[in-house]
């Protein structure tokens, strides 16, 4: 038995920390681990990710698709299915993230096996726990499929170290034997056109140790500047509830919750957020939860370690000033 882990990279080709979380998940499964690094959309090469993957502890081999001509999800899935068959690998593990979620599940479809999505715990190599109904219930499932395909929730597995390994690198130049068996006509691939990614030197929402999130109580998008100042003072990132995103105050990528991002920082500060179950699903595993809300009945107080009943427009600037 062995596990193939799909690396998740940034649009610039850096290895994302969720890859190390997926590797930690694979380590619990306990079989030897190979890592596959996909090619990059837009033609850049994922060489940095290949080098970084080879340095991860416990990796046996890194399979590089960095030179692949077709970077579409469809081509990657066909390559994954072929690599799993050729391995043969008993497990395919991906991060529950943009690339991994789409490519691993599609590979499961090509292999006609059930994907196990967004795994939060590994009970045994064939038994996994995952959240359902926005985290209001935890389901434990057992797979008897020939290949177990799963995606690992990043916040549930501490990332492994980023050094200590020295895996061999196998460059397959994007041509995986057997890939054609799972593939489709080349003109039916989706074609990547462009990305609209906000460049920032601030920590990403997924990787930040501190997240300051705003909700309906922020009243407008301009007021999020208050949260940015507070987040900056702690080296953190800004997030938002669905209400704030739906109102058009902040961009979609900031949404935290059942249908947005799942985060679990050291400190989560909820500002003007009532605490609907769909929002709690995205942040309740944070190590310390603090909240500011003028309504003492708001459900957010029930999950918060520290709660402040106050007008956020007074409390937030005061906190920022105190931190500076």
């Amino acid at each position: 038995s062995s596990t193939l882990v799909l690396a998740e990279t940034s649009t610039e080709g850096a290895l994302l920390p969720v890859t190390r979380s997926a590797l930690s998940c694979a380590a619990v499964i306990g079989h030897p681990v190979d890592v596959v690094v996909p090619g990059l959309n837009g033609g850049g090469k994922a060489e940095a990710a290949v080098t970084a993957a080879a340095a991860l502890p416990g990796v046996r081999k890194v399979i590089s698709l960095a030179d692949t001509a077709s970077t579409s999800t469809e081509a990657l899935s066909a390559a994954l299915a072929a690599l799993v068959r050729a391995g043969p690998h008993s497990h395919l593990v991906a991060a529950s993230a943009t690339v991994g979620r789409a490519a691993a599940v599609r590979a499961a479809g090509l292999l006609d096996v059930s994907p196990v999505a967004d795994v939060t715990a590994v009970g045994a190599p064939d038994t996994f726990t995952r959240a359902i109904y926005a985290g209001n219930a935890l389901e434990t499932v057992k797979s008897t499929d020939s290949v177990v395909v799963l995606t690992a929730r990043g916040t549930s597995f501490d990332p492994c170290a980023d050094s200590g390994g020295s895996a061999e690198i196998e460059d397959v130049a994007g041509e995986v034997p057997g890939q054609a068996d799972f593939s489709l006509a080349a003109d039916a691939f989706s074609a990547w056109q462009s990305a609209d990614v906000k460049q920032s030197d601030k920590p990403s929402l997924a990787g930040a140790n501190v997240v300051v999130a705003g909700g309906r109580g922020m009243k407008n998008g301009g007021n999020f500047g208050l949260l940015e100042e507070l987040a900056d003072a702690m080296g953190g990132a800004v997030g938002a509830s669905r209400a704030a995103v739906d109102a058009g105050w902040v961009e979609n990528a900031l949404q935290i919750g059942q249908t947005g991002k799942i985060v679990a920082p050291q400190l989560y500060v909820a500002v003007g957020i009532s605490g609907a179950i769909q929002h709690l699903a995205g942040m309740k595993d944070s190590k310390v939860i603090a909240c500011i809300n003028k309504d003492p009945e708001a459900p957010i107080f029930q999950v918060a370690d520290y709660g402040l009943v106050a007008d956020l427009f007074e409390a937030v600037p005061e906190m920022t000033k105190a931190l500076k």
Binding site: S10, T11, N41, A97, T98, S190, A191, W192, Q193, S194, A195, D196, V197, K198, S204, A206, E251, N252, A253, K261
Partner: peptide, 11 residues
């Protein structure tokens, strides 16, 4: 919608 922002693809 992606984790990092938006992406445009043609299918």
């Amino acid at each position: 919608e992606t984790d990092a922002g938006l992406e445009t693809i043609k299918v």
